[in-house]
Nucleic acid binder design. Structure first.
Lengths: 277, 277
DNA sequence: TAACAGATGGAATGAATATTCTAATCTCAC
DNA sequence: GTGAGATTAGAATATTCATTCCATCTGTTA
C-alpha cells in the first residue's frame, strides 16, 4: 500500500489499477476488472449497488478502495466522478476542431488524422450498408443458411478476414462450417463434398481473387445454393448466385476497412441463430 | 403541480423549469436559476451542498423538486445525472435502450432488425474509438513499426481476422510480416526468430486466447517492442507492452463486429506508410 | 495433518443524508 | 393596520449509506 492517493486523475487511477492488478487478491482483482469496465456505475452508484453489480459483498468494495490508497469508497468515487464531469463540456467542440484541423494536407499525414479519416469513412460505409441491404435479401439468405447441412465459406485475399470471422461466429453458434482456405493444397478438393443440401457464402471484392472467380461457378453448377457478398453486379460471383449483397463504394484493397462486410456477415449469422428458435 | 415526472430527459426538464419559472415563488425561482446554471453541481452534490451553493436552506431544495413533480430531491437528481452519463458515453444510452426493446420482441429477431442493430453498434464503437485513441499512442506505435525489421502479428481466436487483415495490408505496403497462426505446429517456433530489432502487434479480447497470453510475455522478455490492442488494461497483453490501445465495450465474442480494431489496424498500417515518405 | 497468515463475507455501528414538520415570517387585500 | 393564506427556515426525524469488526474460510508451509 502507499500514501494517500489524494488528487488523482481518472487516467492515473486506471494506470495504477492496471499496474497493481496482479498483486491484488482474487476478490480484489474481480473488483478491479469491474470498475475499469463500468466506471460510470462506480461514479454514480452506492457501495451496495456497485457490490451487487460486481457480485461481491459491500465490504470488499471498501477494501478495494483501501488497497488503492484511498481512505474509503467515497474518496475513490470522487475520481470516477471527475471523469464524468470532464466528459460533458468539451466533447463536441474538440471533436469538430479535430476533424477540421485534420482535413488539411500536412496534418493529414499524421497517424491521428489517418485514423479519423478511416473512422469517418467507416461511418459512411455503415450508413450505405444499412440503406442498400433490404429485408428481402436478408430473409432469403437466412432461409438458405437455415436449410444448409454444411456451410461453405469462400473468401480469399483481402476478403479472407471476413470469411474467417464468419466461420468463427457460425461455429460458435453450433453450425457446421467448411472454410475454403486452400491450405495444404487445392481449394477445389476442399469444396468437393459440397452438394445442393449445403450452402455457400462467397465474399469477393475488386480485384477479384482468381481462385474465387474460378471456384464459384463450379459450385453453382453443382447446385449449391449461394450467397454472394461483393461490390458490383458485374463481379464473377454474381451470376448464378441465389442471393447477392452488393456493397458499393469499396475503396481500393489497401484502403479497405472491411467494416461493412464484417457487419453484414455478423448480422447474417446472428439473424440465422435467432430465426432458428 | 402535476403528476409524477418519472422518466424525463434532461432537456425536457430544462424546458419544464423554464416554462414554470414565472409561476414559482421567489425562493423557488432562485433555485430554478441556480440548477439551470449549475447542473453538474446538482447531479453530484447532496441537498446540503446544493443548498449552500445556491444560498437557500436545504428544505427549499426539496420543495423545489416537489414543485416540479418529483417525489424528492433524489428523484430529480437522477435526471441531472443522466446528462453526465450521456455526455461521456454516447453509445451506452442508445445501446441499452435498443437491446432491451428489441431483444425480446418478435421484430427484433428479424434479420433486417438484427442488421440495423449491428450497424448502430458499430457506429458507436467507431465514435468511442476515435475518442479514446490519442495521437501520442499512434505516433509511438508508428515509430515502433517504422524501425522494425520484421513485424510479427499475434491475434488468435476471435481476433484472428484482425491479424490477417493487418498482415494483408502491411504486405501490400511492402513490409516484412510474420503472421503467428500456429499452423502446422507450435506457435512458439514461429516466433523464435523475433528480436529487439523487430516488432510485435498483439491483438486479444476477452476471453483472452490462452496461447496469446502465453506467448506474449515471452516475446516481451526477449526485448521485442510490442503494440497491444485489447479491451482492458488488465488483459494479459498489457504488461510489458510498449504501446497499448484500449478499445472498450467490446461485446461478447459471438456478437463482436471487430469494426473498431479493424479500423485501428488499418489506420496504423496506412499511417506507417504515409509517415515513411 | 496441523498451524498459520491472509482473505473473505456478513452483521453491527455510527455517520451522513433526504425528508418532514412546525413555528415564524412574509404578502397582499381590505 | 389587520387578518388570511401562502411561503419560508430551521429543527426533528427517519432512512440510507459507508465503514468497521469479527468469525469463518482458504490456501500454504512445516
Amino acid at each position: 500500500m502507499n500514501k494517500t492517493a489524494g488528487a488523482m486523475s481518472y487516467d492515473e487511477l486506471r494506470g495504477a489499477i492496471a499496474q497493481r492488478h496482479r498483486a491484488l487478491s482474487g476478490r480484489l482483482q474481480q473488483i478491479a476488472e469491474f470498475v475499469l469496465d463500468h466506471p460510470t456505475d462506480v461514479a454514480l452508484g452506492t457501495v451496495a449497488e456497485v457490490a451487487q453489480r460486481s457480485g461481491v459483498p459491500p465490504s470488499a468494495i471498501v477494501r478495494f478502495a483501501h488497497a488503492l490508497g484511498f481512505g474509503g469508497f467515497t474518496e475513490m468515487q470522487q475520481v470516477f466522478r471527475s471523469r464524468l464531469v470532464a466528459g460533458v463540456a468539451p466533447s463536441y467542440k474538440s471533436r469538430l476542431a479535430r476533424m477540421k484541423s485534420q482535413e488539411k494536407s500536412v496534418l493529414g499525414r499524421q497517424p491521428a488524422a489517418v485514423l479519423s479519416r478511416f473512422v469517418s469513412e467507416a461511418q459512411s460505409a455503415l450508413v450505405t450498408l444499412s440503406q442498400s441491404v433490404h429485408a428481402r435479401e436478408l430473409d432469403a439468405a437466412t432461409a438458405i443458411l437455415a436449410k444448409a447441412r454444411d456451410i461453405y465459406l469462400l473468401g480469399l485475399g483481402g476478403s479472407f478476414p471476413v470469411a474467417i470471422h464468419l466461420a468463427y461466429v457460425l461455429r460458435k453458434l453450433g453450425r457446421r462450417v467448411v472454410l475454403l482456405d486452400g491450405l495444404g493444397g487445392s481449394i477445389h478438393e476442399q469444396s468437393h463434398a459440397a452438394t445442393s443440401d449445403d450452402a455457400l457464402v462467397a465474399i469477393s471484392f475488386r480485384n477479384y481473387y482468381p481462385d474465387t472467380a474460378r471456384l464459384f461457378p463450379e459450385l453453382v453448377a453443382r447446385g449449391v445454393p449461394t450467397i454472394s457478398i461483393t461490390d458490383s453486379l458485374l463481379s464473377p460471383i454474381v451470376e448464378g448466385a441465389s442471393v447477392v449483397f452488393e456493397i458499393q463504394d469499396m475503396p481500393e484493397p489497401a484502403l479497405r476497412t472491411l467494416v461493412a462486410p464484417m457487419c453484414l456477415v455478423q448480422a447474417l449469422a446472428i439473424g440465422l441463430d435467432l430465426a432458428a428458435d
